[in-house]
Deep mutational scan, measured.
Amino acid sequence: SASLEDVKTAVLGLLVILQTKLYTLPASHATRVYEMLVSHIQLHYKHSYTLPIASSIRLQAFDFLLLLRADSLHRLGLPNKDGVVRFSPYCVCDYMEPERGSEKKTSGPLSPPTGPPGPAPAGPAVRLGSVPYSLLFRVLLQCLKQESDWKVLKLVLGRLPESLRYKVLIFTSPCSVDQLCSALCSMLSGPKTLERLRGAPEGF
């Protein structure tokens, strides 16, 4: 439990870093931090981490990651405290083949985003970082199938509809809506759902 406290501190630090690096160059920093966060949550489900502190780590990670939004130009952003989304000039939600690297070039400044813009690109060529939603999407499927803490599952179920409104997140990387529907149906009809959940409301 003591070591998990250190892990929790590290994860919180990564969330803060991602919130900053999403809007700064090099964009590969945001890509790497995002991948680290998603990989860490995957390990929770792989090794069945069920301690309360592990659940709190997942809760905080999902609470942040499910706020990711994308505009029509595929640029990622996060809402501010007033709910207004600021889109990044440097990070996009497109999935890119590994051989192309985590970044790609664009020939010049991008068109203005639909929300308040981030800082304008400084040079004639900007390297865009790929932060594909499919990585998070796979972890969300694991959550629906394996999550043991009701608070975490409730958060994910509550945030998913709003995330799905931003269709560009889903359609720019390999996210299977069929698998999502299947996971939701299995969660509702499967007898093991109630068996594994802690803290579920009576009558769920």
Rank of each mutant, 00 (worst) to 15 (best):
P132I: 02
S48G: 13
L4R: 07
G115S: 14
V92K: 09
L197R: 03
C91S: 06
L18Q: 01
E99Y: 12
M96S: 10
L128I: 14
R58G: 00
E147T: 00
E5W: 05
E195Y: 09
V7G: 01
S72M: 12
Y90S: 08
S88L: 01
W150R: 01
Y49Q: 02
V156P: 00
L169E: 03
L188I: 08
C93G: 03
A200I: 12
T193V: 13
Y95D: 14
V84M: 12
Y133A: 04
K81V: 15
D82E: 11
D149C: 06
G115N: 12
L12G: 14
P112W: 07
H74R: 06
C181S: 08
C175K: 05
S72N: 08
T172M: 04
L78Y: 15
V33G: 02
P109E: 14
V168K: 09
K151C: 12
K21H: 07
P109G: 14
E5D: 10
A70H: 04
R69K: 07
F137N: 03
M187D: 01
S39C: 11
K21S: 04
L136K: 01
L68F: 08
F87E: 03
T9D: 06
T106R: 12
S88D: 02
K105R: 12
S56N: 11
Q142H: 09
L68E: 02
V16D: 15
K81S: 14
L180M: 09
Y95C: 10
M36K: 06
P112T: 13
T106Y: 13
S3M: 10
E103I: 15
E202G: 08
Q146L: 10
G199W: 08
P201V: 06
V11E: 02
G83F: 04
G190P: 04
T50E: 10
Y23L: 06
G199S: 09
P113C: 13
G190S: 12
P112L: 14
K81Q: 13
Y49T: 03
A200P: 07
S176D: 11
E5G: 10
K8P: 06
F87C: 04
S189W: 13
Q19D: 06
P112A: 11
P112Q: 15
Y45W: 01
V16G: 15
A30D: 01
V11S: 06
Y90Q: 05
L14G: 04
K105D: 13
K145P: 02
C93M: 03
S55R: 08
R159F: 03
L136Q: 04
Y166I: 06
P161G: 10
R86W: 06
V7S: 03
V92P: 03
F137L: 05
Y166S: 09
L37K: 00
P124S: 10
K154P: 01
L67M: 11
R138D: 15
R127I: 10
P161M: 07
V33I: 08
E202M: 12
H29G: 05
G190L: 09
G83C: 06
A183H: 07
L194E: 10
G190V: 07
T193M: 09
K154E: 09
L4G: 06
V168H: 08
L67T: 11
Y90L: 05
C181F: 06
P26H: 05
K154C: 06
L18V: 03
L43H: 11
S173T: 06
L194D: 04
A200D: 06
E162T: 11
N80A: 10
L188C: 13
G203S: 07
V7N: 02
G203I: 04
K167R: 10
F137M: 05
T114S: 13
L164E: 01
L140E: 01
G13R: 02
